[in-house]
C-alpha cells in the first residue's frame, strides 16, 4: 500500500471518531459530554493561561522517573532472567503475578507505605509498567535462535559479544513491544495515582473540573494526556527504527 493511501486511511479513522464525538456532544446525550470543539476551546484556554503546561510538568516528573526506572531495571532484569535460569526462577513468579493482578488495588497500600508524596506515584508507575517490560524482555531473550548463538560461539565469540552482538539485536523487536505496552501502562499508572493518592498535575485538572462540573476542561485534560501518551509511544517506535532497523528484517 502506498504511503499516501495509508496516511489517508489513518486520517479517515481519526476524523470518523472526532465527527462522532462532535455529533454526540451536540446531540446533548449528557450534560457531562461536551462536543469536540468545546473540548478543544477549553484546551486552548487551559494552554493560554498556562495551567495545562504547569499541570503537565507536575505529572511528567514522577512519570518520567517511573518510566526510566521501569525501562532500565525492567530490561536488565528481563535480560538477566533470560540468560540465567536461576534469575528466572527467582523473579518470574513476582512479575507473572503482578501482570495478572489488578495492580490499581495496591495503590492504597503504596500510599500507606510511602505517604502521599512523589515516591508513591513513582512506585505506581513502576508497578504498572515493569511487569510487561520484564516478561517481554525475558521472552525475547529466550526466543533468540539457538543456531545464531552456536554460530557466534563457533567463531569464538565471548559471552559479552554473544549477548551484545547476537542476543540483544535479536531480542530488540520483542523488547520494544514490551516497552510500548509498559510505557502505555505507565501513563495509566500516573493518572491513577493522581486521581487516587493526591490530586496533582493533569489528575488535579480532571478531578477538580469534574467536581465543579466544568466538563469541557475535564475532557481537555483527558484528551491532552491521551495525545501525549500516543506521541510518546510513537517516539519509542521511531527510536527502535533508528537503532535496530526492524524494517530490514523478514
Amino acid at each position: 500500500m502506498s504511503a499516501f493511501k495509508s496516511f489517508f486511511l489513518k486520517l479517515v479513522s481519526f476524523l470518523a471518531v472526532i465527527l462522532a464525538w462532535e455529533y454526540a456532544g451536540r446531540a446533548g446525550i449528557s450534560a457531562a459530554l461536551p462536543s469536540f470543539t468545546e473540548t478543544m476551546s477549553a484546551m486552548l484556554s487551559l494552554t493560554l493561561d498556562g495551567s495545562l503546561g504547569t499541570a503537565f510538568a507536575k505529572t511528567l516528573y514522577p512519570l518520567s522517573i517511573g518510566l526510566l526506572v521501569s525501562i532500565f531495571i525492567g530490561v536488565s532484569l528481563g535480560m538477566a532472567m533470560g540468560l540465567k535460569d536461576s534469575a528466572e526462577w527467582l523473579f518470574s513468579p513476582i512479575f507473572i503475578v503482578a501482570q495478572a493482578a489488578p495492580l490499581a488495588a495496591l495503590i492504597p497500600v503504596l500510599t500507606f507505605a510511602y505517604g502521599i508524596g512523589i515516591t508513591a506515584k513513582i512506585f505506581t508507575v513502576c508497578i504498572m509498567a515493569m511487569p510487561v517490560i520484564v516478561l517481554n524482555t525475558l521472552g525475547a531473550v529466550r526466543n533468540t535462535p539457538g543456531s545464531l548463538i552456536e554460530m557466534a560461539k563457533s567463531f569464538q565469540g565471548t559471552r559479552m559479544q554473544v549477548i551484545g552482538k547476537v542476543i540483544l539485536p535479536s531480542a530488540s523487536p520483542l523488547i520494544f513491544v514490551g516497552l510500548r505496552l509498559g510505557c502505555a501502562s505507565g501513563f495509566i499508572g500516573i493518572i491513577l495515582a493522581e486521581l487516587l493518592i493526591t490530586p496533582t498535575g493533569i489528575g488535579d485538572i480532571i478531578s477538580y473540573s469534574q467536581s465543579v462540573a466544568d466538563y469541557d476542561k475535564m475532557y481537555a485534560a483527558i484528551f491532552a494526556i491521551i495525545v501525549s501518551s500516543v506521541l510518546f509511544i510513537e517516539l519509542l517506535e521511531k527510536i527502535e527504527q533508528v537503532m535496530f532497523k526492524p524494517e530490514q528484517r523478514n
Binding site: L148, M151, F155, G157, T158, Q161, K165, P169, K245, R249
Partner: peptide, 26 residues
C-alpha cells in the same frame, strides 16, 4: 569454522556484515 544447516545468518545484518562476522568477533 562451521557451516550451519539453517545458515545461521543474522537477519538484521547485511550480507557483508554477516560474511565478516567471524572476523568482527576476532
Amino acid at each position: 569454522a562451521f557451516v550451519f544447516q539453517d545458515f545461521a545468518l543474522m537477519p538484521w545484518a547485511t550480507v557483508i556484515r554477516n560474511a565478516a562476522f567471524g572476523l568482527e568477533l576476532a
